[in-house]
C-alpha cells in the first residue's frame, strides 16, 4: 500500500508538488493525470526516493521514503519515459543481470528469473544480443524485464508509452494488465486520456502540483455529469481546479 501525507516538493521558490494526499491500495492501477509540468514526475521521483520531499511523507509498504529509502527501493520498480535507456553495448541479458546484481539477488535466482522472463516476453531470439540493434518494442520489453527483475510489488511508470508506436504501446498496456493480475500496485502517469481510461482503476488529476480531483472514472464522470474524460479534464484545468480535500 502507498500512502502520501501532505507530500510537498519545492524547487527554490517554485512549488512543484503541494500537500498531496493519496492512498493507493494493493493491486490497484492508479493513474496520475495532468499536463506537462503538473508535478506527476516529481511525485513519482519522490516515491522512487530520487527526490526528498520538502515536507510531508510518502509511505510505501510501511516504509518511509526518506528514513527507509533502501527498503522502499527494494519494493518498487521504475520505468520512466517511453524509450527507457538501456546500455547499448550490453546484451539484454547483461542489462537485466546488472540491475538484478544491484538488487543483491542470488545468481541462481537471477538465472531462473531471466529464463522465466524470456518465456513470458518471448525474448529468446534476442536475449543475448546487444540492445543497440533492438527495435523500440524489443527495448521496451527489456526495460520492463529490468524494472521487474527483483519482483517488486509496486511499479512506478512515468509516461511509459511516450514516443512508442502503436504496437509497442500495446505491449506496454498488456504488460500493465498482466502485472495487475498478480495483485501488484501500479502508479501510472500519463497525459493520454485513452490510456488512462483503458487501464486505471482510479485516477488523480493534478494541476500545478495540487490534486484537483480524485476517484474512479465512473465516480468522476458521474460527479461532473459528463462521459467524456477529456472534457472534464479540460474544464477542471481551465478553471484552475479546486484543491481536493482528502
Amino acid at each position: 500500500m502507498i500512502k502520501l501525507v501532505n507530500l510537498s516538493k519545492n524547487f527554490g521558490s517554485k512549488e512543484a508538488v503541494s500537500n498531496l494526499n493519496l492512498e493507493i491500495k494493493d493491486g490497484e492501477i492508479f493513474g496520475l493525470l495532468g499536463e506537462n509540468g503538473a508535478g506527476k514526475t516529481t511525485t513519482l521521483r519522490m516515491l522512487a526516493t530520487m527526490l526528498k520531499p520538502t515536507s510531508g511523507n510518502a509511505i510505501i509498504n510501511g516504509y518511509d521514503s526518506v528514513k527507509n529509502d533502501e527498503k522502499v527501493r527494494e519494493n518498487i520498480g521504475i520505468l520512466f519515459g517511453g524509450e527507457t535507456g538501456l546500455y547499448d553495448r550490453l546484451t539484454a541479458r547483461e542489462n537485466i543481470e546488472y540491475f538484478a546484481n544491484l538488487y543483491d539477488m542470488e545468481k541462481s535466482k537471477i538465472k531462473k528469473t531471466i529464463e522465466n522472463i524470456v518465456k513470458i516476453f518471448n525474448m529468446s531470439d534476442y536475449i543475448d544480443k546487444r540492445t543497440s540493434i533492438f527495435s523500440k518494442g524489443m527495448k521496451q520489453k527489456t526495460a520492463f524485464a529490468r524494472a521487474t527483475i527483483h519482483n517488486p510489488s509496486i511499479l512506478l511508470l512515468d509516461e511509459p508509452t511516450s514516443g512508442l508506436d502503436i504496437t509497442a504501446a500495446k505491449q506496454v498496456h498488456d504488460f500493465i494488465k498482466s502485472y495487475k493480475h498478480e495483485n501488484r500496485t501500479i502508479i501510472f502517469s500519463s497525459h493520454s486520456m485513452d490510456e488512462i481510461e483503458k487501464l486505471c482503476d482510479r485516477i488523480a488529476i493534478i494541476h500545478k502540483g495540487k490534486t484537483i480531483e480524485i476517484g474512479t472514472l465512473d465516480e468522476i464522470k458521474k460527479k461532473y455529469n459528463n462521459n467524456n474524460l477529456s472534457d472534464i479534464f479540460s474544464d477542471l484545468i481551465s478553471k484552475g481546479g479546486n484543491d481536493y480535500e482528502y
Partner: peptide, 17 residues
C-alpha cells in the same frame, strides 16, 4: 552519457547507494 541515455534514474532506484 548516463544522463543523456536516461539510465541514471533506473540505476538510482536499485538497492545500491
Amino acid at each position: 552519457g548516463e544522463r543523456e541515455r536516461n539510465t541514471f534514474e533506473a540505476l538510482f532506484s536499485t538497492k545500491a547507494k
